[in-house]
Computed example of a mutant assay.
Amino acid sequence: MTALNRRWIAAHIPHQGSMCLLENVLDWSEQRIVCDALSHTDAANPLRAAERLGAAIGVEYAAQAMAVHGALLAQSDAAPTLGYLTSVRGLALHVDRLDNLAGPLRVTAERLSGDTRLILYQFHIHHGERCLIEGRASVVLDAQTL
């Protein structure tokens, strides 16, 4: 079985280098993906501003988990396709920042509905048992054809 680690993730989503925020795929099914991330503690994280990583950046972590989920469902080694986050709803930030949390974040995205062009996900980001961020996001797939 192929290790679904950062190397695999970077090969299957458009985000490269330090913009590839996820570390591993821990579990996945047709409806759900669970990943972990360590990049929130990296002082070189490209999404840091004013020497901190604000909690709203967690939406990008969730979006990358959604992209990885799409790549897993596609079951193809083709080049990653572009998707766009078109809306975020019901966003709840239960913390102010992410960079002051030691240890991995757990990023979960669950597909609520969708078709071949538009998908609605619900997402959660946890640190241990504590929920840090939650919300829903819609994604347009194969966006380069728009």
Rank of each mutant, 00 (worst) to 15 (best):
T2V: 14
T2G: 07
N5Y: 04
R7H: 12
I9E: 02
A10P: 04
A10Q: 08
I13T: 03
I13Q: 01
P14E: 11
H15I: 09
Q16W: 07
G17N: 13
S18R: 10
S18T: 12
C20W: 01
L21D: 02
N24A: 06
L26M: 08
Q31N: 13
C35N: 07
C35M: 12
A37N: 04
T41G: 10
T41H: 05
D42S: 15
A43R: 09
A44D: 13
N45K: 05
L47S: 00
A49H: 11
A50L: 15
E51K: 08
R52Q: 12
A55I: 01
A56Q: 11
I57M: 14
I57C: 12
G58P: 02
A62R: 00
A62L: 00
A62F: 00
A65V: 11
M66E: 09
H69K: 10
G70Y: 11
L73N: 03
Q75V: 01
D77R: 14
A78N: 11
P80Q: 05
P80T: 10
L82N: 09
G83T: 08
Y84Q: 04
T86W: 00
R89N: 11
R89S: 15
A92Q: 15
A92E: 15
A92Y: 04
A92W: 03
L93N: 07
L93Q: 08
H94A: 13
D96G: 14
D99V: 10
A102P: 09
R106V: 15
V107F: 10
V107Y: 00
T108W: 06
T108L: 05
T108G: 03
T108Y: 01
A109K: 08
E110N: 12
R111S: 12
L112Q: 15
G114H: 13
G114R: 13
G114Q: 14
D115W: 02
L118C: 06
L118H: 08
I119R: 06
Q122L: 05
I125M: 04
G128H: 09
E134C: 04
R136F: 01
A137G: 15
A137P: 05
S138C: 08
L141H: 04
A143E: 11
Q144D: 14
Q144A: 15
